[in-house]
Simulated assay, not measured.
Amino acid sequence: MDFNFSDDQEQLRDAVRKWVDKGYDFARRSATEAAGGFSRDAWEELAELGLAGLYIPEDDGGMGMGPVEGMVVMEELGRGIVLEPLAQALISGAVLSAHADEATKENWLPRIAGGQAIVVLAYQERKARYRLDQCAAQAAASGSGYTVTGEKSVVPVGDEADAYIVPAQLDGKIALFLVERAASGVESRGYGLQDGSRGAEVVFDKAAATLITKDGLAALEHAVDVGIAATCAEAVGVMDKTMDITVEYLNQRKQFGVTIGSFQALRHRVADMKMQLELARSMSYYATLKLNAPTAERRQAMARAKYQLGVAMRFVGANSVQLHGGIGVTDEYIGSHYFRKLTQMEMSFGDTMHHLGEVSARMQDTAGVFA
């Protein structure tokens, strides 16, 4: 199998890396975090690069690209620990393109691709514990449309988004709806998250909603799997940069008149970190290549990848802090922000223990060995 990237993919990587290096330095990120964890200006710059429409067909104003391009982009954004949740644009673009009717596509996809509309997935509930089939929110028919009632937690930029993709029970079955933030009956309360980004609690009280699909559980699984693949790729970028920062520090910090990077025990620790990074990278590739596979195969692959990425994120992050010493957890030092990001991502779209359970539940006669 050829794992080399095409010229177009390398050009895409180069364009995103240049934007991160020149347009999203640590000072801008810190200012964005201090201002609340989200910048509409930065979001529009990402859209100008075409990234918000990466998974949206060209006929709908997007770039019409696929999972590999999404992986390339998310890796580079991870290297810059970009606060703006581009993964949500990938999710909304993929879900609406695959499951919505033509009128909904025409209304939302061009605006998502152009950066004029931010549509985010609002699916987490307090009692669900990462289970997608547990949904307390309720939907009901209302005239020619629908209304949604319920509460969703930790919604990315939930108080800044223009609309939400919301799962809710309809006639005893989970359906997927699109609800505008400006609709009557929608209330949001924003707050900062551990990694410096922004989340919100969102309450729907008979809020007007547009039906995306009545086969909501399958569409929700698709949405979350897009999010898992994006998170895995982003985590590889975060760990890659964490490694660079750590090695740079070891080659500068001195003890007993020599750089600590010359100590054999510390070099072994760095080698172990590198092994975890490369294992994570290979599993991110695996998740990306399985994103368009049949549902059962795709779900199994995402659980495997997210579990392994969770293990690697914890190992690389913890060892980076330990190799730095006290400075590794100070807010003024950039390395601590990478550690916080890894900690946050380990819990996104299901934590490591949840996905270990998912891997176990999906084992067949092969006992988890790839067929």
Rank of each mutant, 00 (worst) to 15 (best):
K206P: 00
A207H: 03
A207F: 08
T210I: 08
G216K: 05
L217E: 01
A218Y: 04
L220Q: 01
E221S: 03
E221V: 01
H222D: 00
H222G: 00
V224G: 00
V224D: 01
D225T: 01
D225W: 05
V226P: 00
I228M: 02
A229Y: 02
A229F: 04
T231N: 10
T231C: 06
A233F: 09
A233H: 05
A233I: 03
A235S: 12
G237D: 05
M239S: 04
I245K: 15
I245G: 02
T246E: 13
V247E: 15
E248K: 11
N251F: 12
Q252G: 02
Q252H: 13
Q252Y: 12
K254I: 10
K254M: 14
K254N: 04
Q255N: 07
Q255Y: 14
F256V: 07
F256G: 03
G257D: 06
I260L: 15
I260H: 10
F263N: 10
F263R: 09
Q264C: 01
A265C: 05
R267V: 06
R269P: 02
A271D: 13
M273I: 04
Q276Y: 15
Q276T: 02
E278W: 08
L279S: 12
R281A: 12
R281V: 06
R281H: 12
Y285K: 14
Y286C: 07
A287E: 04
A287D: 07
T288N: 05
L289I: 03
L289Y: 09
A293C: 04
P294D: 00
T295E: 14
E297I: 14
E297M: 14
Q300R: 15
A301T: 11
A303S: 06
R304H: 08
R304E: 15
A305E: 03
Y307L: 14
Y307W: 15
Q308I: 09
Q308K: 11
L309F: 09
V311E: 07
A312I: 05
M313Y: 03
M313C: 02
G317V: 01
A318R: 03
N319M: 09
S320K: 01
Q322I: 08
Q322M: 11
Q322D: 06
L323D: 02
L323K: 02
G326I: 01
V329S: 03
V329T: 08
D331Y: 11
E332S: 09
E332D: 10
Y333V: 08
I334F: 13
S336R: 12
H337E: 10
Y338P: 03
Y338S: 05
F339I: 09
R340P: 05
K341V: 06
L342W: 15
L342M: 15
Q344H: 15
Q344F: 15
M345A: 05
M345Q: 13
E346N: 13
E346W: 14
